[in-house]
Design a binder for these strands. Sequence first.
RNA 1: GCCGCGUUGGUCAAGGGGUUAAGACGCCUCCCUUUCACGGAGGAAUCACGGGUUCGAAUCCCGUACGUGGUACCA
Length: 507
Amino acid sequence: MSKVRVRFAPSPTGGLHLGGVRTVLYNYLFAKQHKGDFILRIEDTDQTRFVPGAEEYIFACLKWCGMEPDESPLHKGSYGPYRQSERKEQYRQYAEQLVKNGYAYYAFDTKEDLEKMREENKTAENPSPQYDHRIRGKMQNSLSLTEAEVNDLLTRNTPYVIRIKMPENEVIGFTDMIRGEIRFETGLVDDKVLLKADGMPTYHLAVVVDDYLMKITHAFRGEEWLPSAPVHLLLWKYLGWENEMPQWAHLPLILGPNGKLSKRDGAKYGFPVFAMNWTDPRTNELTEGFKERGFLPEAFVNLLAVLGWNDGTEQELFSMEELISKFSMERVHVAGARFDFEKAKWFNHEWIKKSAVQNYTLTVKELLGSAGISVTDEGKLESVLELVKDRCTLLPDFVQQSSFFFKTPDRLDVDAVKPKWTADKKDFFTAYADKLASLSEWNIPGLENCFKQLAAEKNIKPGDLQLPLRIMLVGGKYGPPVFAIAELLGKDETIRRINNAIVVIEG
RNA sequence: GCCGCGUUGGUCAAGGGGUUAAGACGCCUCCCUUUCACGGAGGAAUCACGGGUUCGAAUCCCGUACGUGGUACCA
């Protein structure tokens, strides 16, 4: 069997959203599992939709997710170029070959002609008339015109497209790796444009030609492509490559709160839809990314992998390596899956807990930096992160959970203490600060024993003193166990915070 | 409208003729912890509907409804 080769073929028109990343992921997993190649091909045949920066952005997203292509415009391979715009000259010959063999034809209809045709044939029962076998005889094309007329138009450089000639009455089908047998009636499909007037191929021609030329063995794409599958099927056949056609799988859609997930949903419901922040260079509109929201790439990949796939066991947390060995296209769910941001957050929380803190120390350090807290002692940062990671769902949560280790709180939640504040308590804390100064064992048991002994001496329940101490050190009602905080804060800082807090509370 | 694909709890889902219909997220209760979490123990679903086939159907077949995608010289 020949080497597995799969491809992801985005058009560089904007951000890369969830569904796109999942398509990449399934391609990548399949390729790596079979020791095959993962190819990135840029489908930039629509020059009117070119967006500067979009291609670089796609590479950045793939890199962040840990899915490097084996071949791409940036990774050398023997099947380049990997941008369809740079392959432009290759497509025409295949389109012409189809015309010559009677499988396609020239069409000279202008935009206005097409509009007119749609307008005239539009009825309540048929709101969107197609350019198909019933209509083509009435249009301006090499099927309806005489050879002389066609030659005349051609010599006068009349713009034309090449359309596939769909058979009137055939049934064509294929076996989808996920869905099984799928059939279509060719008479119901329109004569899709294969080569545009500007000489660029449409997706339909380009995908077939390039998949063939690049020796793609398996083609995975979104379910939205299923309706045009008969066109591609016929093209493989008409071009004489039927035996080399890749195996296909059409991946289920990822849905938003209502309907297909769109970037608008993200803005509307407050969750990211793109892998990374994307700013549209034309409108300057920013669409939030999972990365910037504080997701770990491991979590992002994990949650995407199980949105539509599972291994049949109860396992939910998978590393990339596990996914590579366990993934199977046959176990991909057929139905679309609704994206649930709450569950997505759960995955991130789990990955924060299970990862070594070194995995995100740098990111947290940057987050703290932009919150005005500069960390110089990275060893301490790591200890802090280890201590607080159970309480952090998204990376930015670390800012609140760890700031007070590096910076004396600006504001104490005195309201949490004042109502129950007494002279006895003031007395206790004054004495505790004193005793800490001479404490030899600066560790959790030492701090706690000292605290409890003193509380017993003063005849106060230790429980009544814990919250005030927390407020003194943290500023609020949150954070890890209070003696663990004191331990990391160190003797001087702990004593200073207690004494300062007494003044604030008394005032 | 037509065509394709789909339909198991709010969500992700296992299960593919005989099960008390797994598990996870979220929600609720309790335990742990006199912070917040983590962790632990519980609670809540007759598998869209209607017909078949069968001794028996969430599982097979047909229909209906609903959802979703396509119906561009966009991908």
